[in-house]
Amino acid sequence: MEDRAYDVVVVGGGAAGLSAALVLGRSRRRVLVVDAGEPRNAPAAHMQGYLSRDGMPPAEFLGEGRRELERYGTDAVRDRVAAVSPDGKGEFTVALADGGAVHARRVVLATGVVDELPGVPGVAERWGRDVLHCPYCHGWEVRDEAFGVLAPEPFNSHQALLVTQWSKDVTLFLRTVRDLPDAEWERLSAAGVQVVEGEVSGLEVEDDGLTGVRLADGRVFPRTVLFVASKPVVRDGLLTALGAEFRETPVGPFPVVDETFRTTVPGVWAVGNAAGPMEQVINAAGAGYRAGTVINAELLLKDIDTETARRRAGAFTPEAEAEVARRVAGGRVHGLAG
């Protein structure tokens, strides 16, 4: 960070951010990754469904990613971004929480989401262990165990029906839900889901393992796994301050992005869970890669067009021509001083 000027600043060091930084570093771009060290999947012991990395601990996966970036001269700091401010010339000043600031031609936001959990005592403490959300992430590891499912608000039966693929012993706890449409009762019955009415007051735990779900009336239902539908809340502070457009989703607002994950703010991309609630690790990495390739090409063509315009205006000196030729040959083109 000696001259504090970068082609791209990546905010967030999860799978999406590191993937974007990797492809940009391999494109000989100067990149800074600013990471607060709060990955969404930190509570999980392992991550699944990522080809060649299935079962790898999340911390180990991210550590390996950071080591790979070192090969390409990418800078990284453990910090937060306090603000991203347009500089009036199509680029940005990125203010860090430690009081410093850097310049960025483009910004990638990979800030992810925060999971809001049901306010049932014990759920937050066991999150990512035997209180789970995604059966694609954890279903195989807990297959054929006794599943419980907390009914979400507003209610839909999707999660309770889905987890029957991994266990036929599934109990849905309706909590505050009082009436279900006949069609919902029929589907749950056809799937073999037991339905229990009544508010849930807490979890039963023995020897650091879930053993049951306790209702407010004192009844306890033996369960060893509990699925809950968390509410993923996007960390949208930076995008909101920039005036980004948002769209409504079933779980709340997320930024509008195009197929390359470009937001409605020129020069700013949002990748991974910062762009949508359903991005698993492998999807997030793919989003970062795609954004990185588009950003590199955009910067390259912008610089070439700038030099072309200068040539046409007669401002292209032999020295400047030699310099741009050198940079093009090296795969890296920057605007030259006039």
Results as ranks from 00 to 15, higher is better:
residue 4 R to P: 10
residue 5 A to T: 15
residue 7 D to T: 06
residue 8 V to D: 05
residue 8 V to Y: 00
residue 12 G to P: 15
residue 12 G to D: 06
residue 17 G to M: 09
residue 22 L to Y: 15
residue 28 R to Q: 02
residue 30 R to P: 11
residue 30 R to W: 13
residue 41 N to D: 08
residue 44 A to V: 12
residue 45 A to D: 03
residue 46 H to A: 14
residue 48 Q to H: 15
residue 49 G to H: 13
residue 51 L to D: 10
residue 58 P to R: 10
residue 59 A to C: 01
residue 60 E to G: 06
residue 64 E to K: 14
residue 65 G to L: 06
residue 73 G to N: 07
residue 73 G to V: 09
residue 74 T to S: 09
residue 83 A to C: 08
residue 83 A to N: 11
residue 86 P to D: 13
residue 89 K to D: 12
residue 94 V to Q: 00
residue 94 V to H: 02
residue 98 D to L: 00
residue 110 A to D: 00
residue 112 G to P: 03
residue 112 G to R: 12
residue 113 V to S: 06
residue 114 V to Q: 08
residue 114 V to R: 04
residue 115 D to F: 04
residue 115 D to T: 05
residue 115 D to M: 00
residue 118 P to E: 06
residue 120 V to S: 03
residue 121 P to F: 00
residue 121 P to E: 05
residue 122 G to E: 01
residue 123 V to F: 01
residue 123 V to G: 00
residue 124 A to D: 07
residue 130 D to I: 13
residue 130 D to F: 10
residue 134 C to P: 03
residue 134 C to T: 06
residue 134 C to N: 03
residue 135 P to C: 04
residue 135 P to V: 08
residue 138 H to A: 13
residue 144 D to P: 02
residue 145 E to K: 10
residue 146 A to D: 12
residue 148 G to W: 07
residue 157 S to F: 00
residue 160 A to M: 03
residue 162 L to Q: 12
residue 164 T to L: 05
residue 174 L to F: 01
residue 174 L to H: 04
residue 176 T to F: 14
residue 180 L to G: 13
residue 185 W to K: 14
residue 186 E to V: 00
residue 195 V to P: 03
residue 195 V to M: 09
residue 195 V to H: 02
residue 196 V to E: 01
residue 196 V to P: 02
residue 200 V to E: 01
residue 202 G to L: 05
residue 204 E to N: 05
residue 205 V to M: 02
residue 209 G to C: 11
residue 210 L to C: 00
residue 211 T to L: 01
residue 215 L to R: 07
residue 218 G to L: 04
residue 218 G to C: 10
residue 219 R to L: 06
residue 227 F to S: 09
residue 229 A to W: 09
residue 234 V to C: 13
residue 238 L to Q: 14
residue 248 E to C: 01
residue 250 P to Q: 04
residue 250 P to W: 14
residue 255 P to Y: 06
residue 255 P to A: 11
residue 263 T to M: 13
residue 263 T to Q: 05
residue 270 A to F: 10
residue 270 A to L: 07
residue 275 A to L: 11
residue 279 E to N: 09
residue 280 Q to C: 04
residue 281 V to W: 01
residue 283 N to K: 10
residue 284 A to H: 08
residue 284 A to S: 06
residue 286 G to I: 12
residue 292 G to Y: 15
residue 296 N to C: 04
residue 302 K to E: 14
residue 302 K to R: 13
residue 309 A to N: 04
residue 310 R to A: 10
residue 310 R to G: 11
residue 312 R to I: 04
residue 322 A to P: 12
residue 327 R to Y: 08
residue 332 R to Q: 10
